[in-house]
Design a protein around this nucleic acid. Structure first.
Length: 1091
RNA sequence: GGGCGUGUAGCUCAGUUGGUUAGAGCGCUUGCUUGACAUGCAAGAGGUCACAGAUUCGAGUUCUGUCACGCCCACCA
């Protein structure tokens, strides 16, 4: 034991104990285990990249809970796994493909790309799982899941099929956020807005055959001029005259009620509108009348292109109506607004109100203009070349009125970081009305409880909109939507043929009627199309077979298997004659569609597995707040729909870790922290403890980060400037290095520097403190013999420690059960450091020197260390295991029962702290009196130390002191003499009411349990009069201030009458006590004055 | 524009139902190579609890308003 290093070696402990736990199967659990279950499913990390600090936090919090519950005797299952993260993963692989091989996905083809992504997934999944293990996560690895593995694919197909058969899935034209780089729709949640510098162009559209007195042109303005090629109308407000009056009146009202400082701005707004009324309204009214009259406008640049001149043939431009719609705002610009239904959200809404204007899609999926525009523009990218061309041509045609600079909040795709184009496409949707309601009910009824509660509001607000969920993605990486389109040649006979031709063939190829679901809408049916959803892989392969038979050439047909089977051949001929096309859906499902099933699919659904019965609903979900809607809400509705029960009873939302500037950490910003860097530098225990310590009531937490130079080890703060660099130069030694998080290190050979945070020093230091306390205990447990400890042998400090230990056990358990991680961490930190180490361990030093006290001290120390390790284990698993194992070598049997029994509760320690029982609070040991008595001891000790320090008494010098206090306190303190010697090099010469102050002394007065305690340190050899006087005067002033405060309080009749009597009395006692202290101080001061 | 949250020591944060002199870690000052630990020990300095009102005997804590900051949602031809 003696050769234990004086510093805790976290790397060695991590290397040793994780494999130990895993090999013993502590993390594995079975469904037939009779103990009550406790289940958590991991929020599956995306396989896009390595884990970051946010994951470390989230998973640490889960592990803390899981480890505590395991110790509490639950059958504990923590289900691990990863998410295929459709768009994100495909995007990252495609980006790499382009960078490293200059290839696009089309060069590889669907199969080729998907194969690449699987390779990526294997690589990162392995890395992620390894990171979790290094963090110490006690997941049941044998059950590791992946959202896109075979089983989960089956679950996804099953859910889709049920929804499809239930009529909750439909396909419709919708304006979507189109990512022209990835060529897919992205959801609103995957779009971020970024302010960019842009322009506001004012164009003139000619009026066709203007009558005398009518304007010849209508002016419109746009930030996206290229969209004019898809304009199908210009809108004006139906009643601009009334509307402008209403607006002006509103300004007047605001002006009256607004505070003075805002008045100028409001007046300016009103004046602008007054001016508009004067100058713009008359013309707008004319245009309004023209709209009523059904007059048309010409959209420039949309006519027939003449290749010989390179110009538009005059008179061929598209003609569009002027329509009345209050989307057109009054008081701004000309009051007219162009309408491009296929490329703008609001214009799309206008089209819904005016279906007759139609919509023209002018864009290809790649963001270039399509054949709906004149030849000269085709193939130009919308927001770059097409825009320039349109603006140039409008200017050349003298139809550009003016251009303004303007900052535009441009939507960007979160995945590709390119601008979004609104785009009209066919998309798959899930009807949300009823499903959303069930998810809302689950929370309002309390079946699912969200902590902290405030997050329930966002959840409910979002769901209450009940917006249908666009579930399709135009990607290759993901669950392919299991739908086939069957195009019949004769629309009239569609349904009949479906049953008479398709069904027997499907059956022949191994697909039964109940494995498919058929749907069609009126529009489809008119064109002879039905959609068929396949439930199983066998149904899927039957369709592939049918598709082959339908498409095959004469030659292939002659060699096909159907030849020779007369009945089959007949059917297939019918198939070929009645069906024009069999088409498989290309889209894949939104990632969240499969994530929504996570809690039940990972437990075996759709099969009725023992796991599903045993572990579902899970106990709690721990996740971050930005996916409450995307993920949590959808899991709730999916669970209710598929299994009929909520997926979890509680949801705990974690804090968010921000950098020193309060910004979210991200790879692209370069401010992320790799948990492995922290683990390497400070240890997993330090990281975990530090994270738990930060987890207050979902406060966001700022974590300033530093770079660590790989050459000289110097640390310097990360700034907004240096974190953007791919190559960072050390501020100390000047040598360059890169960081893992830099997006593109320009030099791969560059040494990698870590990004760390000094905030984790707290945990590292704490771990080391605990390690050394344990080391001390182990050294002094030599000769430990398990045996009974009689209550009477317990000294004051033993009773104090056991009382505190009981309280701490209660507090930690309670805090963790309520997700108050920081409270639990702080409680343990304070207790272990300031009570266990600073007092108890210190005091045992004296006792180990006294043979008859040695054994009791050893037993209490071993017991306390045992309990402390168990309490700390969820937060610091490696350190506690290391200590646990060492302790087992010297004290294999230990334990202490509640009071009164007079015996120890000796028990052989179990083989790992992982599976040790969670401590139960010995409430019988809790004793307020003992704790107060101990506080008196601490106060006297503190007073002596304070005087020594203040008087600059050399540490080696012995001092003597007296304590004037009541007799009872004196009785308690007298036996503590050895501790004063050891902890303050001080010897008491008198205790009690009669103890007099030495002639020359420095004094401190302290409010004790039974009146004031005066501590006098004999200073005849050391006195520093000036210092002491200064101190006493300060003390006197402080006392006077307090006395004044209480006196005025007590003089207040209201206080005396209305405050609780108890409190008033308390104040009176306090006042008396303070006055006593004041007089002692005065006496001491007077004495000094005489010197 | 709507919602949620946050302003407490130089920095990062605690402060549970209103009730002694508002706490911790880091940093800072002073003194210590104390036989567990310098990743440590002892002592100390440092705060008008964003601001203004209200309720109350009493407000960091409750209410109203103001200012600043952050996040989410919606919108911006």
């Amino acid at each position: 034991m003696k050769d234990l290093p004086s510093q805790y070696d976290h790397a060695a402990a991590q290397e040793k104990w994780y494999p130990f736990w895993e090999s013993r199967g502590y993390f594995h659990t079975e469904a037939d285990d009779p103990r009550p279950p406790f289940t958590i499913v991991i929020p599956p990390p995306n396989v896009t990249g390595a884990l970051h600090l946010g994951h470390a936090l989230n998973n640490t919090l889960q592990d803390i809970l899981v480890r505590m519950k395991r110790m509490q005797g639950f059958n504990t299952l923590w289900m691990p796994g990863t998410d295929h993260a459709g768009i994100a993963t495909q995007a990252v692989v495609e980006r790499r493909l382009l960078e490293e091989e200059k290839k696009t996905r089309h060069d590889l083809g669907r199969e080729g790309l998907v194969k690449r992504i699987w390779q990526w997934k294997d690589q990162y999944e392995a890395r992620i799982l390894s990171q979790l293990k290094q963090l110490g996560c006690s997941c049941d690895w044998a059950r590791t899941q992946f959202t896109f593995n075979e089983h989960n694919s089956r679950a996804v197909r099953e859910w889709f099929f049920r929804l499809f058969a239930d009529g909750k899935i439909y396909r419709g034209k919708r304006l979507v956020n189109w990512d022209t780089f990835l060529q897919t729709a992205v959801s609103d949640d995957e779009v971020f807005h970024e302010a960019v510098k842009g322009h506001f162009w004012h164009f003139k559209y000619p009026v066709i055959d203007p009558k005398p007195g009518e304007p010849t042109h209508v002016t419109i303005a746009t930030t996206r001029p290229e969209t004019m090629l898809g304009d199908t109308a210009v809108a004006v407000h139906p009643d601009p005259a009334t509307e402008i009056e209403r607006i002006i009146a509103a300004f007047e009202r605001d002006l009256e009620s607004a505070p003075d400082k805002d008045k100028a701005a409001i007046a300016a707004g009103r004046d602008a509108h007054l001016e508009w009324r004067t100058w713009k309204l008359p013309e707008l009214l004319k245009i309004r009348d023209m709209a009523i009259d059904g007059r048309m406008l010409e959209v420039p640049l949309t006519g027939k292109f003449d290749p010989t001149t390179g110009k538009i043939i005059p008179g061929t431009n598209r003609r569009i109506p002027i329509i009345l719609d209050d989307w057109a705002k009054v008081g701004i610009g000309s009051g007219c607004v162009k309408i491009t239904p296929a490329h703008d959200e609001n214009d799309y809404a206008v089209w819904q109100r005016h279906p007759e204007i139609g919509a023209i899609n002018i864009m290809n999926p790649d963001g270039a203009l399509n054949e709906s525009v004149p030849e000269g523009y085709r193939g130009l990218k919308m927001h770059t070349k097409a825009r320039d061309a349109v603006v140039a041509d409008m200017e050349a045609a003298d139809l550009l009125v003016r251009v303004e600079d303007r900052v535009i909040d441009l939507p960007h795709s979160d995945r590709s970081k390119t601008p979004i184009e609104p785009y009209l496409t066919d998309q798959w949707f899930m009807k949300m009305d009823e499903l959303a309601q069930t998810a809302m009910d689950a929370v309002t009824s309390g079946r699912v409880k969200i902590t902290p509660e405030r997050y329930a509001k966002g959840y409910l607000d979002w769901l209450s909109e009940k917006r249908d969920w666009p579930i399709g993605r135009q990607l290759w990486w993901g669950h392919r939507i299991p739908v086939w389109f069957i195009h019949f040649r004769n629309p009239d006979a569609t349904l009949e043929r479906l049953e008479s031709v398709l069904n027997p063939l499907l059956a022949h190829y191994g697909c039964n009627r109940d494995e498919i679901s058929v749907t069609y809408d009126v529009k489809d049916l008119r064109r002879g199309i039905v959609k068929v959803c396949t439930k199983s892989e066998s149904a899927e392969s039957a369709f592939r077979k049918l598709k082959d038979l339908q498409e095959c050439t004469q030659e292939e047909w002659r060699h096909s298997e159907v030849i020779g089977n007369l009945q089959l051949e007949q059917l297939c001929l019918k198939l070929r004659s009645s069906i024009r096309l069999i088409q498989q859906e290309d889209d894949v499902l939104d990632t969240w569609f499969s994530s929504a099933l996570w809690p039940h699919s990972t437990l075996g659904w759709p099969d009725e597995t023992p796991e599903l019965k045993r572990f579902y609903p899970t106990s709690v979900l721990i996740t971050s707040r930005d996916i409450i809607t995307l993920w949590v809400a959808r899991m709730v509705l999916a669970g209710l729909y598929n299994v009929g029960d909520v997926p979890f009873h509680e949801v705990y939302i974690t804090p968010k870790i921000l950098d020193g500037y309060g910004e979210t950490m991200s790879k692209s910003k370069g401010n992320g922290v790799d948990p492995l860097d922290v683990i390497e530098k400070f240890g997993a225990d330090a990281l975990r403890f530090g994270l738990a310590y930060l987890t207050t009531d979902t406060q966001d937490v700022k974590l300033p980060v530093e770079f660590e130079c790989p050459h000289c080890g110097a640390q310097f703060p990360q700034t907004k400037k240096n974190r953007q660099l791919a190559r960072i130069e050390c501020e100390k030694c000047g040598k360059p290095f890169s960081t893992q998080w830099a997006e593109k290190p320009d030099d791969k050979a560059l040494a990698r520097g870590a990004v760390v945070s000094e905030r984790f020093e707290l945990g590292r230091n704490f771990a080391n403190k605990l390690w050394n306390a344990a080391r001390f205990a182990l050294m002094n447990l030599e000769g430990y013999t398990p045996g009974a400890v009689a209550d009477k042998d317990l000294l004051l400090e033993d009773r104090w420690l056991l009382s505190r230990l009981a309280t701490v056990t209660q507090q930690v358990t309670d805090s963790l059960e309520r997700y108050r991680y920081a409270d639990a961490a702080r409680t343990l930190y304070d207790f272990a450091w300031n009570e266990f180490c600073s007092f108890y361990v210190e005091m045992t030093k004296a006792r180990f020197a006294v043979p008859e006290q040695r054994q009791t001290a050893q037993q209490v120390l071993a017991h306390a260390l045992d309990v402390l390790m168990r309490l700390l284990h969820p937060m610091m698993p490696f350190l506690t295991e290391e200590v646990w194992q060492l302790l087992a070598q010297v004290a294999p049997e230990r334990g202490l029962a509640g009071p009164g029994s007079g015996t120890t509760r000796l028990a052989a320690a179990v083989e790992s702290v992982c599976i040790a029982a969670w401590p139960e609070a010995d409430v019988g040991r809790q004793d307020v009196t003992i704790e107060e008595q101990f506080a008196d001891f601490q106060a006297v000790l503190g007073a002596v130390r304070e005087i020594r320090q203040r008087q600059n008494i050399p540490p080696r010098e012995e001092v003597t002191f007296t304590v004037r206090c009541d007799a009872r306190t004196a009785e308690l303190l007298r036996p503590m003499q050895p501790y004063f010697t050891q902890m303050a090099r001080a010897t008491s010469t008198a205790w009690g009411p009669g103890a007099a102050a030495p002639g020359i002394a420095a004094s401190v007065t302290h409010a004790g349990r039974h009146g004031a305690m005066e501590v006098h340190v004999d200073l005849s050899r050391f006195i520093d009069v000036a210092a002491e006087r200064k101190r006493l005067e300060k003390e006197r002033d402080n006392l006077n201030k307090q006395i004044g405060g209480i006196e005025s309080k007590l003089a207040n009749k209201n206080f005396v009458d209305r405050a609780p009597a108890e409190l008033v009395q308390q104040q009176r006692d306090k006042l008396a006590d303070l006055r006593g202290q004041l007089s002692s101080v005065a006496t001491a001061l007077a004495k000094l004055a005489n010197r």
